[in-house]
């Protein structure tokens, strides 16, 4: 390895360490994520309960990873507009912003409408309200019927749009939403096993479940989930409950450094002979394993030190 490259790696490591200190020691909360969750009109008792359930599950998970989450349990147009305006005023350019709509949608050939209590709001209106939020990245998730009609309207830089359908013509009620929210508590959705569920992982999981459901029931699929824009890496949920001991910051930094190197190696995979690639991968993974082991050992130690005594002493 050349010196410049070595130095570069040290600088990267240093920046990462600084960021970890700056952003707080806990990897349970991703700093700078804000979210608005809106529940639409159910129409029937069954859908109303389902939407509420899904939204509350999403809300619960997001509160563990985001700083600022608002749930509108029966969102009305004016409330949505007002909340988004408020977010616009308090969102920093380094923040990520998430908008999730759980409910029915409709499409009349021209405009997509969010079916909410009172007057519906349109995709065009939502786009206008979201455009005022200056965030590093926006994620828009719409789980209802006809949501594919939003894809064109919502397309812009630094925004990922996830919809339950591929077009406005897919007007049947969808099952995507229930699987999207279920993803946030299912280990099998955590494909990279980092104990976090990203929007990308939630989407892939939900899409796979939707496809499987129609195949199993031998029915023609009436919904085809779509993801448009940059890969949605925003974290929506944390699996496992323990926050990491701040004293392990150095090890955590080392772990993240190994992970970064692994991603860089993977990017070079096609240019390497298979044996060489896997040999390098193995080396990095052994390093990561060692660090991971020490983090786990440190966690146990810290946990033993901080646990309150079970009983008071007795004479």
């Amino acid at each position: 390895m050349g010196f410049a490259s070595f130095l570069g790696r040290c600088v990267v490591r240093g920046v990462i360490i600084l960021c970890v200190f700056a952003c707080g020691m806990s990897t349970a909360a991703v700093a700078g994520t804000r979210a608005l969750l809106v529940v639409g009109l159910g129409g029937t008792e069954e859908y109303a309960q389902e939407f509420q359930r899904d939204a509350e599950a999403l809300d619960g998970h997001m509160r563990a990873v985001a700083d600022d989450v608002v749930l509108l349990a029966s969102g009305e147009r004016e409330q949505v507009a007002s909340e988004l305006a408020a977010f616009a005023s308090r969102t920093d350019p380094d923040d990520s912003f998430v908008f999730i709509y759980v409910g029915h949608g409709s499409y009349d050939g021209e405009a997509f409408r969010f079916n909410v209590t009172g007057r519906d709001f349109t995709g065009v209106e939502l786009n206008q309200w979201l455009n005022k939020i200056d965030a590093k990245h926006q994620l828009v998730v719409v789980t209802g019927s006809s949501s594919g009609a939003l894809l064109e309207t919502m397309a812009r830089d630094k925004r990922t749009t996830i919809t339950a359908t591929r077009s406005g013509e897919q007007k049947n009620a969808t099952v995507f939403g229930r699987y999207f929210s279920a993803a946030l508590s299912d280990d099998s959705a955590d494909v990279n096993k980092d104990q976090r569920i990203s929007a990308s992982e939630a989407f892939d999981y939900a899409k796979s479940k939707v496809e499987g459901l129609y195949e199993e029931e031998n029915e023609m699929a009436t919904e085809h989930p779509q993801s448009q824009g940059p890969a949605p890496v925003i974290v929506l949920a944390q699996l496992g409950s323990k926050a990491l001991d701040p004293g392990l910051a150095d090890l955590i930094a080392q772990r993240e450094s190994f992970e970064l190197e692994i991603e860089q190696l993977k990017a070079k995979k096609s240019g390497l002979a298979s044996d060489e690639y896997f040999a390098q991968l193995q080396d990095l993974l052994l390093g990561l394993a060692a660090v991971e082991g020490r983090i786990d050992a440190g966690q146990i130690e810290a946990s033993n030190e901080t646990d309150a005594p079970n009983e008071a002493s007795e004479l």
């Binding site: 772990r255 993977k266 193995q282 993974l285 052994l286 990561l288 394993a289 991971e292 082991g293």
Partner: peptide, 19 residues
């Protein structure tokens, strides 16, 4: 095992097996 960890580098059981 390497294929598993290539997908999920922090997969604990796989890391333990590697060690």
């Amino acid at each position: 095992l390497l294929q598993s960890l290539e997908i999920a580098p922090r997969f604990k059981p796989a890391l333990a097996l590697l060690l």
